[in-house]
């Protein structure tokens, strides 16, 4: 799964799909805006989410933010490494700082999401 296949939301989540599982996190822009992240609530496996549902909350020193599920799906895994080191979201937002994996519902429409280039334009807009 290459960098160019990563998809983005207007609310600053990214995700990439492999088979029927989407790995999801906060964008580099979002982590930069939030600043030092000190807690990420571990998303619990097995929970079903509709698109737009709150997936988890992310606490930075300054504020708390909600992370939304961009697509319908079931949480298969939360990134347990973030319990020990939530700053991974700051240091490696697209890698070790991933937040959850979602099993996609059948026939999920991915056409509404932005690619990297479009997202770049969105945050500069």
């Amino acid at each position: 799964m290459g960098e160019k296949d990563r998809l983005f939301t207007e609310t600053h989540e990214w995700f990439s799909v492999e088979g029927d599982v989407a790995t999801l996190g906060l964008t580099d822009y979002a982590q930069g805006e939030l600043g030092d992240i000190v807690f990420v609530e571990l998303p619990e496996a097995g929970r079903n989410l509709a698109a737009g549902d709150v997936l988890t909350t992310v606490e930075s020193v300054k504020s708390v933010s909600e992370l939304y599920a961009p697509i319908e799906g079931e949480i298969v895994e939360g990134n347990a490494d973030l319990e020990d080191d939530p700053s991974l979201v700051n240091s490696d937002p697209y890698g070790k700082g991933w937040i959850a994996k979602l099993k996609l519902a059948d026939g999920t429409d991915l056409s509404q999401f932005m690619n990297a280039e479009q997202y770049e334009a969105h945050i500069k807009g």
Partner: peptide, 9 residues
């Protein structure tokens, strides 16, 4: 400025 590098550092 809210922060430069980061609040913690």
């Amino acid at each position: 400025p809210m922060f430069y590098e980061g609040i913690i550092s």
